[in-house]
Amino acid sequence: MLTAKQIEQAKPREKGYSMSDMGGLFLFVTPTGAMVWRMRYRFDSKERTLSI
């Protein structure tokens, strides 16, 4: 599970990367430094991603 401290310390990299939380929820950090919560789920046997 991600903590507030881990989120604050997340720095941008050359490519975007994700930091896993739990239950399909993860924090995606873009190369520009923006942070977006995303959730992976399955619907109709297809994997989908929801940005929150």
Rank of each mutant, 00 (worst) to 15 (best):
Met1Thr: 05
Leu2Glu: 00
Leu2Ile: 01
Leu2Asn: 00
Leu2His: 00
Leu2Gln: 01
Leu2Ala: 00
Thr3Cys: 04
Thr3Ser: 04
Ala4Glu: 06
Ala4Arg: 02
Ala4Leu: 12
Ala4Phe: 04
Ala4Lys: 14
Lys5Thr: 05
Lys5Asp: 07
Gln6Met: 08
Gln6Pro: 02
Gln6Val: 01
Ile7Ser: 01
Ile7Thr: 02
Gln9Cys: 08
Gln9Lys: 04
Ala10Met: 01
Ala10Lys: 01
Lys11Ile: 15
Pro12Met: 11
Arg13Thr: 13
Glu14Met: 08
Glu14Phe: 05
Glu14Thr: 11
Gly16Met: 04
Gly16Ile: 03
Gly16His: 01
Tyr17Val: 03
Tyr17Glu: 04
Tyr17Asn: 03
Met19Glu: 04
Ser20Met: 11
Met22Ser: 06
Gly23Phe: 05
Gly24Met: 14
Gly24Arg: 01
Leu25Ser: 05
Leu25Gly: 00
Phe26Leu: 09
Phe28Glu: 01
Val29Ile: 14
Val29Ser: 01
Val29Tyr: 00
Val29Asn: 00
Thr30Tyr: 12
Pro31Cys: 14
Pro31Ser: 15
Thr32Tyr: 12
Thr32Trp: 02
Thr32Asp: 08
Gly33Asp: 15
Gly33Asn: 13
Met35Gln: 15
Met35Thr: 15
Met35Ser: 15
Met35Trp: 03
Met35Val: 08
Val36Met: 11
Val36Phe: 09
Trp37Leu: 04
Trp37Arg: 03
Trp37Tyr: 10
Arg38Pro: 00
Arg38Lys: 12
Arg38Tyr: 06
Met39Ile: 11
Met39Glu: 11
Tyr41Pro: 03
Tyr41Cys: 06
Tyr41Gln: 03
Arg42Gly: 13
Arg42Met: 13
Phe43Val: 13
Asp44Gln: 12
Asp44Arg: 04
Asp44Val: 10
Ser45Gln: 09
Ser45Val: 09
Lys46Arg: 12
Lys46Ile: 04
Glu47Ser: 09
Glu47Leu: 09
Arg48Lys: 14
Arg48Asp: 10
Thr49Ala: 07
Leu50Pro: 03
Leu50Phe: 06
Ile52Met: 15
Ile52Val: 13
Ile52Lys: 11
